[in-house]
Amino acid sequence: MRRVFIKSAVSISVLDSFLQEDLSQLSESPNGAWTLKEPNYRDYVAPAMLRRASKMMKMSLASSQTALEQSGIQSPDSIIVGTGLGGMTDTVKFLEGSIRAEEGSLIAPGAFIQSGHNSVSGQIALLLKNQQYNMTHVQKGLSFEYALLDAMLRVKEGDDAVLLGAVDEKIGVLDQLAERMTWPEDMRRQLSEGCSFFVVEGEAATGVEIVEVKISKTEDLLSNLDRLLESHSLNLTDSVQNFVGYSELPKADLPFAHQVYTDRVGRYFSSSAFGFHLASDTLKHQGKPGDFATVIHFSDLQFSSIMLLRRV
C-alpha cells in the first residue's frame, strides 16, 4: 500500500492564517472577533472568474491556487472537495428570485449555476483545464474526512498528487436557525466559516504522513481512539498534541491533554480541515521523525472521526 503525505496546506479562517508558514504560531483574534480574514482576491483570481464568485468560491480559488503553487504541482491527478452546505449564498439568492418571480417571467440563472455543491471542484478544473477525477463530498461535519479518505484511495490507486479542499460559508439564516433551535450561546457565537486546501501526494521521503482516518459512531469515539492508537503501537499521552473540534455537539470533558481548534476558528461543517492543517504544521515545525498528532472531531450525535498524522 502506498503511503500518503501532505505536500502543501493553505487555510483562510477568522485567524490570520492565509500564507502563514506555521499555523501553530498564530496569535488569537483580539476579543474573539469572528470575522473572516480574507486575502485580496484580485491578487490570486482573474477578474473574469471573480465577478460571479460567491465568498465560498473566492476562498476556494485563492486557497487552491496557492496550495498548488506551494507544492510546485501545476495540474493534480485528482481534485476532491468536501463541503457541508455548499453554496448557500447562491442557493438562497436563486430561491428568492424563483419564489418572487411571477408566472412566465424569466429568472437570472447565474445563482442557480453557482448553487451546485460541486461548483467549486468544477470551477477549479475549468480554471486549470484539468480533465482528471473530480469529486465533491457533502456529509455534514465529516465532509472533509470523506474527501480525505477518497484522496488517500486515489493515491493508493496510483495518483501522484491530489488537490484536496474543504470549504463552508456562513449566511445569516444559519444564525437565525441556531437561535430558533435554542443552541447554547457558546455554541451559537462560534458559528463560522473558512476554507482549507492541500496537496497530498504518494511519494515523500520526509514530511507529514496521513497514517489513518477513521469514521466512528460518536458513542464509540473514545474507545475507537484507544484501539486505533494501539493498532499503531502508540499512546495518547505521547502525542505531540491532540487537536479536538466540535461541529454540532457541545464541548466534552476529555480525560487527556488537548487543544480545541474550534475555539480558535469557530464551528463550520468542514472546520476539521483546519484542525488537520494545524496538526500538520505542528508536526512539521515542532516534531521530530516518529512524532505523531491526532485530530479528534466530535461531529454529530451519530458520527464522528479521528485523524492520525505522523512526522517522518
Binding site: A48, R52, S105, L106, I107, A108, P109, G110, I113
Partner: peptide, 17 residues
Amino acid sequence: LGLDSIDALEIIVILDN
C-alpha cells in the same frame, strides 16, 4: 467585454424584466 454564454442568458432576463 469578454462576456460568455451565461451572460447571454442574463441579458435575456434584462430584456424581459
